Amino acid sequence: KNAAKIVNEALNQGITLFVSDNKLKYKTNRDSIPSELLEEWKQHKQELIDFLTQLES
């Protein structure tokens, strides 16, 4: 999976991924984040940080 797909899947579940101080963060109104999503974010962390940083610049 690529970073764009992961970010879109998160958005579809009401979760916004973003970068703050070079760290991957998220915002959501959900009570909890599915563990498989958290695991996927960890596996692709640097790719996600790079992707989101490019989007914001």
Results as ranks from 00 to 15, higher is better:
11 L>F: 10
45 K>H: 14
29 N>C: 14
8 N>G: 10
46 Q>F: 08
15 I>H: 03
43 Q>S: 10
18 F>Q: 04
45 K>T: 14
49 I>Q: 03
32 S>E: 11
38 L>F: 09
54 Q>A: 14
39 E>W: 09
7 V>M: 05
57 S>R: 11
6 I>Y: 04
30 R>C: 06
11 L>T: 07
26 Y>F: 11
19 V>H: 02
9 E>G: 04
51 F>V: 02
3 A>E: 03
37 L>N: 03
45 K>D: 08
33 I>N: 01
11 L>W: 10
8 N>A: 15
11 L>I: 08
35 S>Y: 13
47 E>K: 06
13 Q>G: 04
1 K>N: 10
14 G>P: 00
57 S>G: 13
12 N>K: 15
53 T>Y: 07
7 V>D: 01
57 S>H: 13
10 A>P: 00
20 S>V: 15
18 F>Y: 15
5 K>Y: 12
5 K>Q: 15
16 T>Q: 10
43 Q>C: 06
32 S>T: 13
22 N>T: 06
44 H>V: 04
57 S>E: 12
31 D>C: 09
18 F>I: 06
20 S>M: 11
52 L>R: 00
11 L>S: 07
4 A>T: 05
30 R>L: 10
16 T>H: 12
23 K>Y: 07
35 S>R: 12
34 P>Q: 04
26 Y>T: 03
3 A>L: 07
37 L>T: 05
30 R>M: 10
19 V>K: 02
54 Q>N: 12
1 K>D: 08
54 Q>E: 11
16 T>R: 09
19 V>F: 05
24 L>R: 00
24 L>Q: 00
45 K>W: 15
8 N>D: 12
45 K>G: 08
2 N>I: 14
13 Q>C: 09
6 I>K: 02
45 K>Y: 15
34 P>K: 04
36 E>G: 09
34 P>A: 05
47 E>R: 06
54 Q>W: 12
45 K>C: 14
50 D>G: 06
29 N>V: 09
2 N>S: 15
36 E>D: 10
2 N>E: 10
53 T>M: 14
6 I>R: 03
55 L>Y: 12
30 R>G: 08
7 V>F: 13
10 A>N: 02
28 T>Y: 04
32 S>R: 08
37 L>K: 03
55 L>A: 10
57 S>N: 13
15 I>A: 03
21 D>H: 09
50 D>F: 11
9 E>T: 07
49 I>W: 04
35 S>Q: 14
31 D>W: 04
49 I>V: 07
39 E>A: 11
8 N>Q: 15
57 S>Q: 13
4 A>F: 10
56 E>Q: 15
50 D>H: 10
27 K>M: 08
32 S>W: 10
27 K>Q: 07
1 K>M: 10
15 I>K: 01
46 Q>L: 08
18 F>H: 05
26 Y>C: 05
24 L>N: 00
47 E>Y: 05
25 K>N: 08
7 V>I: 13
22 N>S: 08
7 V>P: 00
35 S>G: 10
14 G>E: 04
45 K>N: 13
37 L>G: 02
48 L>Y: 00
34 P>H: 04
39 E>M: 09
33 I>Y: 03
47 E>H: 05
47 E>A: 12
24 L>K: 00
12 N>C: 13
27 K>V: 09
51 F>I: 03
43 Q>M: 14
51 F>L: 05
24 L>D: 01
22 N>I: 03
3 A>H: 02
24 L>A: 00
5 K>N: 09
42 K>I: 14
37 L>I: 06
8 N>H: 13
11 L>N: 06
35 S>M: 14
40 E>L: 15
30 R>H: 07
4 A>P: 06
41 W>R: 00
6 I>W: 04
55 L>D: 08
26 Y>E: 00
4 A>W: 14
23 K>M: 14
4 A>L: 09
19 V>C: 05
54 Q>Y: 10
5 K>D: 15
5 K>R: 15
36 E>A: 12
17 L>N: 01
54 Q>S: 14
2 N>A: 11
20 S>R: 09
53 T>V: 11
18 F>V: 05
34 P>E: 04
22 N>C: 13
25 K>L: 15
51 F>E: 02
35 S>T: 11
21 D>C: 12
42 K>P: 01
52 L>V: 02
40 E>C: 15
11 L>P: 00
32 S>L: 07
8 N>M: 15
41 W>M: 06
51 F>W: 09
27 K>W: 09
54 Q>F: 09
1 K>A: 11
6 I>S: 01
34 P>M: 03
1 K>W: 11
42 K>T: 11
14 G>M: 04
44 H>L: 05
15 I>V: 07
23 K>E: 15
52 L>S: 00
13 Q>R: 09
36 E>V: 09
48 L>S: 00
15 I>N: 01
47 E>Q: 09
48 L>K: 00
45 K>Q: 14
30 R>Y: 05
50 D>Q: 11
20 S>E: 15
3 A>Q: 02
5 K>E: 15
